[in-house]
Design a protein around this nucleic acid. Structure first.
Lengths: 147, 147
DNA sequence: ATGATTAATAAGTAATACTTACTATATGGC
DNA sequence: GCCATATAGTAAGTATTACTTATTAATCAT
């Protein structure tokens, strides 16, 4: 009844969708026997996107605290998917690099991400889908103050 | 570099936004001294939206497992914001009702949700904002199979 | 040279949400 | 009416995501 209590506002929609997407990713990753969580998959993709880079820079790119990313990297390193290397320019810092073993995992993750995306899109036409992405980018920019 | 590893796809955008929104909500709720988590706030809004209803129906409306909602309700009941009442039609079931004490909390939550929404929207024009909501609804529908 | 800052991480915590197993009650078939 | 099955709620346990605080080691600025 009361429109004041609307569970279909922007925030609810985004929160719902994030949960649905994560659950779907999770299920598909599980089914594929990849052995990484959605968060770890996210870390891998960022690392693949930006190449060799410092942990703190990776964390900043991901919009997470350094500590949070450090724990993800622990697990990815245990699985032999990333390697921490000393940064010759700063002995405190560590450079993150994907291993060859990560290639196959990344391929599988990309495939799964594509499947989830296809499900999300459904029958939506090209223009709407592109517009949706643009609008979401704009909103994210409003939060992060950046692009 | 590689466009194959794009951290600006739909899934990333939604996941990022959900995290940013939750963090912003959290911060503002904290600052206002309301003493409920975003998830509890969500539960309250659903309860306000649908009126007196059974726990299992509430869970289904929220798209969560009954157990998950049960725990939220435990905490809300502790704070005196909801009341569990026996369902005269089924002695296993419990009806959920908001207390009067919940009114003030709901008001504060709505105000905060409005602030977060305003931040998300930024300078976006009316048409785009409405379109964004429609498109998100459509995508959520693709996941839930419903509206 | 030293005082402040930064990079990484150990430790602890909180929120969100799940599954499994259990109890009590309800319902449908015979 | 009786019993098998299903349902409503919850206790217990777990996993993921992500935070804060404090510590250590190294760097930077004055």
């Amino acid at each position: 009844m009361s429109l004041r209590f609307d569970p279909d506002t922007f925030g609810f929609l985004v929160t719902d969708l994030a949960r649905l997407i994560r659950a779907d990713m999770d299920r598909r990753i599980e089914a594929a026997g990849i052995g990484v969580t959605p968060g770890e998959a996210r870390t891998l993709i960022y690392a693949a996107r930006y190449g060799v880079l410092r942990q703190n820079v990776l964390a900043e790119r991901m919009g997470l605290e350094a500590m949070t990313v450090s724990v993800y990297l622990d697990r990815l390193e245990e699985r032999g998917l990333v390697k921490r290397m000393p940064d010759p320019a700063d002995r405190r810092a560590k450079l993150i690099r994907l291993t060859r073993k990560a290639d196959a995992v990344l391929e599988a993750i990309l495939r799964i991400a594509g499947e989830v995306r296809a499900r999300a899109r459904g029958e939506m036409d090209e223009e709407s889908w592109a517009r949706l992405r643009d609008l979401l980018k704009q909103v994210r920019g409003n939060f992060t103050g950046g692009a």
